[in-house]
Design a protein around this nucleic acid. Structure first.
Lengths: 191, 191
DNA sequence: CCTACCGATCGGTAGG
DNA sequence: CCTACCGATCGGTAGG
């Protein structure tokens, strides 16, 4: 007896796919309604607004990353183990839920203002904590002495292509993906 | 006597900025008109359509990358010199014309179909030639034996954060930017 | 370069 | 969950 997906859940998933493929602004509520076999007006029995959907997608993913960060900060191991774990976090979030993460990555700027500010604060917090780990690695002498912002953004964005590119069942399996990207980046970071 | 910028040029530059900041779909012709102190209808004395502007931005940048690629292919030097030169190509295009390149990177999907297919073909060609150079480096034994697609996409996207982040006059100067990103990535590539 | 305006489509609501 | 419809805004044109 499989758990029934709520209609709301189905709408959110269809929306994430449309936002990823066409962008938030180019996706109309009629497009979304068609994707879930409803009329546009009927969507509003399940959701409050178009932007509410975007908010859900953006904050859900923000919290995925932040709770992953929390685990990494608490874990045993060297600083380079932590960076490796963060790289793996990004790859596994990306491969587990590509559509949602891509929408989160590319469409958050269409949030409007109380939420936009909140969202940017979460992101800034995440980046700050990531950078602290990098700086610790440099201070301990295990990482090369490169600018920590440059390392941070290079790592963060180098992992982003997975979102655009990864399709389950494609030639490369996830294990190989993780280990090769991780090997590539860690070699750039370590002395 | 400075060369006068044509009104068309001014419109294109304002459009690139708006497309980058708000996205193509969320930018209205009224927004664009306001940015250049015209009424929306007057734009059409200088341009044919909204999409024509996007086409201009996308194909101009595609040709920048392709002509850079052509120079690199023709240059003297080792395969790793060529990869280094390609990384520098990406960084210098990004820092010289951030707005236009960001629009090109993020908004090309709003092209419609004869142009979209052409555009994707140019991009595919560029990636194919980049990958050939990587594979040559692996075959020669200078590069680590990682999957060439993984190296390609990691390099391509790791350079993309510069678009989102780089603002002229910011703390890091372009020389340091180039040398640190390049050092980081080359260490990941070379044996 | 503008005013005036076109039909189409937008997100969303009323009412059942 | 639908039909019917709202005011606002869209890209673009006519005509001067």
């Amino acid at each position: 007896m499989p758990e029934e997906k709520s209609k709301k859940q189905i709408i959110y998933e269809a929306a994430a796919r449309l936002f990823r493929d066409k962008g938030y602004s180019a996706t109309s509520m009629r497009d979304l309604a068609r994707a879930v076999n409803l009329k546009a007006s009927s969507l509003y029995n399940h959701i409050k607004s178009k932007e509410e959907i975007l908010q859900g997608i953006c904050f859900e993913n923000a919290h995925r990353f932040l709770s992953g960060m929390k685990e990494v900060e608490a874990m045993q191991g060297t600083t380079s183990d932590k960076v490796r774990a963060l790289i793996q976090l990004h790859i596994s979030i990306a491969t587990e839920d590509v559509t949602s993460v891509t929408a989160f990555n590319d469409e958050w700027r269409h949030l409007s203002d109380p939420m936009l500010t909140d969202f940017l604060q979460l992101r800034k917090d995440y980046e700050r904590r990531f950078k602290m780990i990098i700086e610790q690695g440099i201070a301990e002498g295990d990482f090369r002495t490169l600018d920590s912002s440059i390392i941070l953004y290079t790592v963060l964005s180098s992992v982003r292509w997975v979102y655009d590119w990864y399709k389950p069942g494609k030639s490369i399996d996830q294990g190989k993906l993780e280990s090769e990207i991780s090997a590539f980046l860690m070699k750039g970071i370590l002395k």
